[in-house]
Design a binder for these strands. Structure first.
Lengths: 233, 233
DNA sequence: GAGTGGTCTAGACCACTCA
DNA sequence: GAGTGGTCTAGACCACTCC
């Protein structure tokens, strides 16, 4: 606790974390109520409430009305990953962003892709493939399908200067998305483009988005094995 | 807005989201100040503040003192991944959980590991290696280091029946964690244990945890390439 | 310097849930 | 029913940052 001035909710948070760390309050144990803590710290209940809510949000505490507040038995049930634009991701690392369009053509999706997107009937889609570079080195191979029924304007875009990633962010809102992370073996073309041996390990992120139950886009983003997805809690 | 009763911070949040979705407030635009919104909604500034802070935390708004509150130009989309216990993860798929301890020994961490954990000085750690199986098939190879200064009780646990994953969850609270997802090539031992060819692609999840700036544990979880981390928004 | 968000207070009422 | 957290109010002061 900072000896001067008023008590901040951060002071309370860190003091509570300290007590948990030092086993004064064991996992699963009930901790004092908000009134008691407010009295102890000499601050208002609202301040204690904010500190406890912060800790509950981060999974350290569990709160239930009437039952009180407990130290979590199994903290952290979820991790949050930020999904930025590729360009921002690259520039944030201090590297120069590069972009190369590899192909852009209207196609009729095959059975597998339609099943994936939850399409009943065939549809017109745009297939765009491109490469994102960091300081000239391959960073991400983007293999994307855009549903022209959901985003008809995409049909008139060349994607030679602006990547589909960036164009869609400001032109195709979505209400639901699904992410998949996995490891895979690089296929022939991907391998050559990313500069990894054929069959070598690559990191794959896939994203599907819908706007009001209508598929918008499916994208497969392939990274060299040096890629890392990082998050902090 | 709900016509009855007081205005909730949720009412304000959803109304603001609606205005952004309908382009009444364009990306990058300045929105009214807290006082103005409080007057408009007929509630106190604290309530507006809470709504705006929630939206700023989720990346929809950007706030700066004196500059005011703006609609984010690139709404940061974030993905939430649940990080369950391995056993729960396997049982949730309807498979039978199996566990095999491979090794458990006190060690002094090398330079690289200490740098990773932010250790200044050497420390006593416990190195535990084990395998988690789903219906008898290798599911995850767990390679873990536990800081015995932070969790001394771990020194007295055999980990032959209970996995370190499960033991730590109920015995070693933490206040900060870092997750990393990546692809890698399987090393000799891992490959054999997971039943993949040596050098084949594997999915690696790493987790570091701290309790009040003291490192608690570092774990490397290696999965066969069939593994998928999935999330929905 | 002035305007904005950040936070704390003291009090109040409500909603949920356990006994 | 009673106790706990959840939330709102009205007011205040502060900290930061832009002009």
């Amino acid at each position: 606790m900072s000896g001067l001035g008023r008590i901040s909710h951060r002071d309370i948070s860190s003091e509570i974390v300290r007590r948990i760390a030092e086993r004064l309050w064991e996992p699963g144990a009930l901790i004092p109520g908000e009134q008691a803590l407010a009295a102890e710290f000499g601050c208002s209940r609202a301040t204690v409430n904010r500190a406890l809510q912060d800790l509950a949000r981060s999974g350290i505490l569990e709160r239930r009305r009437k039952a009180g507040t407990r130290v979590s038995l199994n903290p952290v049930r979820e991790a949050r990953f930020v999904i930025p634009l590729v360009r921002q991701e690259i520039e944030a690392k201090g590297a120069a962003y590069g972009y190369r369009l590899l192909g852009c053509e209207p196609v009729t999706p095959d059975e597998e892709l339609r099943a994936r997107l939850g399409f009943g009937k065939p549809a017109r889609m745009l297939h765009v493939r491109c490469l994102h570079l960091a300081d000239g080195a391959p960073y991400q191979y983007e293999d994307r399908w855009i549903n022209l029924d959901a985003v008809p304007e995409a049909g008139g875009v060349s994607f030679s200067a602006v990547s589909p990633n960036e164009w869609l962010v400001t032109n195709a809102p979505f209400s639901r998305a699904e992410f998949i992370f996995r490891a895979a073996h690089a296929g022939g073309e991907e391998a050559a483009l990313l500069g990894v041996p054929e069959g070598g390990a690559v990191f794959v992120a896939e994203r599907l988005t819908w706007l009001a139950d209508k598929p918008v886009t499916f994208v497969r983003m392939v990274h060299p094995p040096s890629h890392r997805v990082v998050t902090e809690l």
